[in-house]
Every structure is written in C-alpha cells, then in structure tokens.
Design a protein around this nucleic acid. Structure first.
Length: 103
DNA sequence: TTCTTGACAACAG
DNA sequence: GCTGTTGCCAAGA
C-alpha cells in the first residue's frame, strides 16, 4: 500500500528538477523509493495542483515524449532551454536529470 | 469482488 | 528511429 503522502513525495522530487533538465517518471518513482510506481507518478502529477509550483513539464516518459494532449509543455521546455528533436520528443541523452551516478 | 484503465517502462521486431 | 506487446500496481466502475 502506498503512503498517503505518496503524492507529496512526488511533488518533492519533481520540484528538485533543475532548470534546463528533464526527468522521467521512472526516475521520479525511483528517487522517492517506489521504482515500480512510475504510473502512480503520472497520476499524481495529473492531480497535482498548480499551487504546488510543480515543474511537471520537466517530467517526460522514458521515450522522451511529452504528455499527449498537453501541447504547452513543449513550448515551456523550449523556453527553459530543453533541446527538442524532430518528432516532438526531448533529447533525453543530453537533458536527462542526473541526480545520481548515471553511467 | 472482479475487470478495466492509466501524463509508464522495458523489450522485441 | 518508431510501433506493438507485456509487466507492474493502485484507483475507479
């Protein structure tokens, strides 16, 4: 069972994403201690209130794709300096948030 | 209680 | 590079 503050953990992690970088749902889930809860992360962000000041636009899926139906996200990322590739996916290879030893 | 769904991830072709 | 399938886990109908 997930703790009631699961969402809060997600918010905490997302808020720590540095400007100019992006994180995947899996990364967030792993960071807060629930590597298998990547889907919960997406659900939490969907419910995330704007008052939390969450840079949820910096969160993309493992393929570097943006949220379906949320076109503003792409523009927001571009304004932050996130390089986009043709097709509308972010260049994860260069912008992935490296909060820990990556490789 | 069972079945379906989801802002996903990993793997195969 | 992209699409399709499978697995994960909790919420909702």
């Amino acid at each position: 069972m997930l703790p009631l503050n699961f969402n809060r953990l997600v918010y905490s992690a997302v808020r720590q994403i540095p400007r100019g970088q992006v994180a995947t749902y899996g990364q967030i889930a792993f960071l807060i201690g629930f590597p298998a809860q990547s889907r919960r992360v997406g659900f939490a962000l969907r419910n995330a209130p704007e008052e939390e000041n969450l840079p949820c636009h910096r969160v993309v899926n493992s393929q570097g794709r943006t949220v379906p139906g949320w076109f503003s996200q792409r523009r927001l990322l571009i304004e932050e300096g996130i390089p986009f590739r043709a097709g509308g996916c972010v260049d994860l290879k260069r912008c992935r948030w490296q909060f820990d030893t990556q490789d």
